[in-house]
């Protein structure tokens, strides 16, 4: 079984859309993703609703459009239209500083720890802003941004603090997911990882990194 196929097994994980999983695979194996229509590199658009985000089931919970009440006629008992729309038809990343902070809290490391050096070096590729340099925030989840995120997570996943806190998978998978996402994963949340974890062809280091990258790249961790 190829690494591509192994990662593809994760496509049913909550919030891990098929397009994203395939892209993650591409990023891991080829160092980049085939553009699936995402916003091109270097975009300085502040829009978060461009078509580049993964939409095929990639938004996970809290990301669907407003329910039928939006078309309610307001008759008795009906709440009427919602006062605003979350516009969750496209994925929106958390601001870079918040993603960075979540990683820092997860590993209980200072934000400037060397573990985050790749993350910080690629901060503008990951959507951060510096208006003094004319760089606007961009919270779209494009294929190139996914690849950059995975690259930035590799030193995190390979770090001593990560391995100290979560020494082995599957034993510590639920703990990692729980600490990263803020909820105890259900069997359904863990199920997509089972084949990957049971694959005898994978060496331990590859298995560990693959699982860790998948967990930290899920929308539950990086997106609104």
């Amino acid at each position: 079984m190829t690494e591509l196929n192994r990662l593809s097994l994760l496509t049913t994980t909550r919030g891990l859309g098929r397009a994203w999983a395939l892209c993650l695979t591409g990023a891991l194996i080829f160092g980049g993703c085939a553009d699936d229509g995402g916003t091109s590199d270097g975009s300085t658009s502040t829009s978060t609703s461009t078509s580049g985000a993964t939409t095929s089931g990639g938004s996970g919970e809290a990301t669907s459009e407003a329910p039928d009440s939006s078309t309610s006629d307001g008759v008795d008992g009906d709440p009427g239209p919602p006062p605003f729309d979350l516009h969750r038809d496209n994925v929106r990343l958390l601001p870079f500083a918040i993603r960075h902070n979540r990683l820092s809290l997860l590993l209980d490391l200072p934000p400037d720890d060397p573990v985050f050096s790749v993350l910080l070096a690629r901060r503008f590729d990951l959507g951060d802003y510096d208006f003094s340099k004319g760089i606007n925030p961009d919270l779209t989840w494009t294929t190139s941004r996914m690849a950059n995120w995975v690259a930035a997570m590799r030193p995190v996943c390979g770090s001593a603090p990560m391995k100290a806190r979560y020494p082995e998978f599957p034993l510590d998978l639920a703990a990692l997911m729980g600490d990263a996402y803020g909820f105890t994963p259900s069997p359904a949340d863990l199920e997509p990882y089972e084949d990957l974890l049971g694959d005898a062809e994978l060496d331990e280091a590859t298995r560990y990194e693959t699982v860790c990258l998948a967990v930290l790249s899920q929308l539950e961790f990086v997106a609104l």
Binding site: T46, T48, S49, P81, P83, F84, H87, R92, L139
Partner: peptide, 15 residues
């Protein structure tokens, strides 16, 4: 909620 300005501008004024 990570809205754009244009999206936020549609917020119900009564709210």
């Amino acid at each position: 909620f990570g809205l754009s300005e244009a999206e936020a501008a549609k917020t119900d004024p009564l709210l």
